[in-house]
Design a protein around this nucleic acid. Sequence first.
DNA 1: AGTTTATGTCAGCCTTGTTGACATTCCAAG
DNA 2: CTTGGAATGTCAACAAGGCTGACATAAACT
Lengths: 174, 174
Amino acid sequence: MQDRGVPHGGGLGAGGENLLYLTDAQLRKGIEAMFFAYRGFTADPDRILARHGYGRAHHRAVHFINRWPGTTVNNLLSILGVTKQSLNRVLRTLIDDGLVESRVGTRDKRERNLYLTADGAALERALSDAQRARMRAAYRQAGPEAVAGFREVLEAMMDPELRRQFEGAAETVE
Amino acid sequence: MQDRGVPHGGGLGAGGENLLYLTDAQLRKGIEAMFFAYRGFTADPDRILARHGYGRAHHRAVHFINRWPGTTVNNLLSILGVTKQSLNRVLRTLIDDGLVESRVGTRDKRERNLYLTADGAALERALSDAQRARMRAAYRQAGPEAVAGFREVLEAMMDPELRRQFEGAAETVE
DNA sequence: AGTTTATGTCAGCCTTGTTGACATTCCAAG
DNA sequence: CTTGGAATGTCAACAAGGCTGACATAAACT
């Protein structure tokens, strides 16, 4: 009843023993690794955010505003995949607290261009420093070849539209 | 001010050009890859859960009860990292809906041993089939070497206690 | 002039996390 | 046997952060 994708006996011609890693047990290990690793991945920022009275939603907003200064609300909505009401609540507190500045668009005055203030940039730096430190330690421990594989699997796991946004992000900087 | 971990000019003796992947930009790419990939990772189960009126908390509970049949509430608490009140609410609905069975412990009658019913196992299978399909596709696309690297980086990113639970899970099955 | 688009906002609902308080059950030490 | 502590369950209250729906406003487009 349960489709295992690849028979344990192997022998699909190309690959063979290389496909051992596609057994259910191996896939489940990958699933649990994602679960536990994501917890570690967010643990340090979560602690910093808690001290400021913020949550992950604030982190995501601050991250992507820092990433693309001057981005519009609609851009942010499509990146974050939430409703405008939900984003607006988070953005409202960040603006009121003086971490984010919202300027009326020059080309199109309906749009709001979002920027981090000095305080916002400071929080962003604290958060990303912590997260990069964790990522750097993991990268160091695993080595360059592992990192390349890590990135390949993650990219393959994204939804196609999200991958496009991710790759778009890449073009902008690299 | 910002510690980049490794100077761009390289020359730290061991490594050198291999450490390019530790620049801030590369680390940030890894961070965003985690963010977008986790969205993809949870997208399929989320859709299934929504049809049943459940959320991710139910998925996690069902997953780990399936993983360790007869586990106690306390075990589950430490794996999931939530409060007993929060878990209890989720568990309550799963038990009331007939997906989970809670048997009084034999050795220690204060404990409750948790098991999936036939319905619970069916939901678990639907969820994990979807998630495994996504993982399998990503693994196939990336190849075995990439998968090994993926797992290495993820394990290095976990908190030590979580890694112990993850490795414990490995022993149980493999 | 009328329509569409971008944004903001209000109200209400849900899930899932939290803390605190308290009851029950039962093992184990005195 | 009694008492202390551990494991569990439950009630209440609260908050973050998702969601939908409705509505307002201003600007741009046609």
